[in-house]
Design a protein around this nucleic acid. Structure first.
Lengths: 221, 221
DNA sequence: TGACACAGATAGTAGCACTATCTACAGTAT
DNA sequence: ATACTGTAGATAGTGCTACTATCTGTGTCA
């Protein structure tokens, strides 16, 4: 497969493919001559993964790069991989410098209490701890009271889901397949979950706030 | 309150506050003289909301503007507001032009089937429909089979949550309070849910993949 | 009265994700 | 042999976003 064909089947413009090559997101093709290279299925697959992570997952290329590096790092233990993927994912990673966010409301300790309540054992440095604390802090700043019980309710809802997701990671197959499964599961199913929550909200919101329930096929806006 | 004080208590630099004023995200202060204006609590509150939406919710300013406009539009029916908020939220709104994404896998009709299965009545033009279909399509492109049953499992997990969220929207208080509640609930709790899912994943992943399970005196539920 | 803060305006910056163009060469069609 | 198209690799430029800097004229307050 030459670069133009790769471009056509993936839907990614040739200059962009070249850009990804330069950026090291995509391995170079098999050079046949000084101006000819051959690309295979693994290139197509990687390209699709990159676009899935950016378009659906909303990752930036820097984050995609970190995830791909973790996928390709044969030495990285499997149980570290999720952490790396998540670290790459969290909004406001090493770049966006959130201020230490004076935690006078005790959002951080609320997170600790929640984890204890749920029996979740999570690395103290897990970036999601900080995101969660930040979100709770922000809610309180907007005068929204969030109790541990509220959080527990949310936590229970995702607990089974997460357990099942982890359980469905295959234990056979090549390492790269397993790893890709975990990453895709983390990133893309997040989009799925978000979309579903919004659909559910719209349904319940319509039932509560709509004056007369419409014929249900009303395309407004 | 003068602009410098507003800046200090909100943690937003003065030039940025000025920028928001220019952009119409923040109402002008009460002018006392040609170079003096007074800002009140509502300015602080609005400023905090802007930062919450951008920092925690990950919205762009254009989207924030749309949400704020909806909040301030006294004529907009309450049950349309969630839609507007969501429309502003969806990745790839009017700007990022996703291709129609040749839906040969039938992701769109799967979404329809799922909605029927759940009994959810959702506007045909709801942007979340498209996001969900896009995510499903992407998963299948990555050779991940997603069944309706899988989706239903996810949907059930968020159904109760969404119902409760909608139920806790107060029916008293000023319109702007109600509206702000809905927006904050949609946007910020999404961040909460995401963080919780990742924490749960990390816990379950550690239990499965860590070589030696730790002392593990964790009574789950 | 003199240092300082402020409003409003214009201009500049940094980061991101591409996109365009150029050169030199290679394969293919005629 | 010659023209044409495609390609690798390099450098430079674009469009967008979210600020950030600086300037001017003015007002406040010690």
């Amino acid at each position: 497969m030459r670069i133009s064909e790769l471009s056509v089947v993936s839907g990614v413009p040739v200059p962009t493919v070249k850009f990804y090559l330069r950026e090291g997101l995509l391995a170079a093709g098999d050079a046949r001559a000084v101006n000819q290279a051959e690309y295979g299925d693994e290139h197509l697959r990687r390209l699709r993964l990159i676009r899935a992570l950016t378009d659906v997952g909303g990752l930036r290329l820097r984050e995609v790069r970190a995830v791909l590096a973790a996928i390709d790092d044969e030495l990285m233990p499997l149980h570290d991989l999720l952490g790396v993927a998540q670290y790459a994912l969290v909004r406001g990673g090493p770049n966006e410098s959130h201020p230490p966010a004076d935690d006078s409301g005790g959002a951080t300790s609320d997170v600790d209490r929640l984890l204890a309540e749920m029996g979740w054992h999570v690395n103290a440095a897990a970036p999601s701890r900080r995101s969660l604390a930040q979100a709770i802090f922000t809610l309180r700043e907007l005068r929204w009271d969030v109790s541990i019980d509220d959080l527990v309710r949310y936590a229970r809802a995702v607990d089974d889901l997460a357990a099942e997701e982890v359980a469905t990671v295959p234990d056979h197959g090549s390492r790269s397949q397993i790893v890709e499964h975990m990453v895709v599961g983390t990133v893309i199913f997040e989009a799925v979950l978000t979309a579903l929550r919004r659909l559910a909200q719209e349904h319940h919101s319509a039932r509560r706030f709509a004056k007369r329930p419409r014929l249900a096929n009303d395309a407004r806006r």
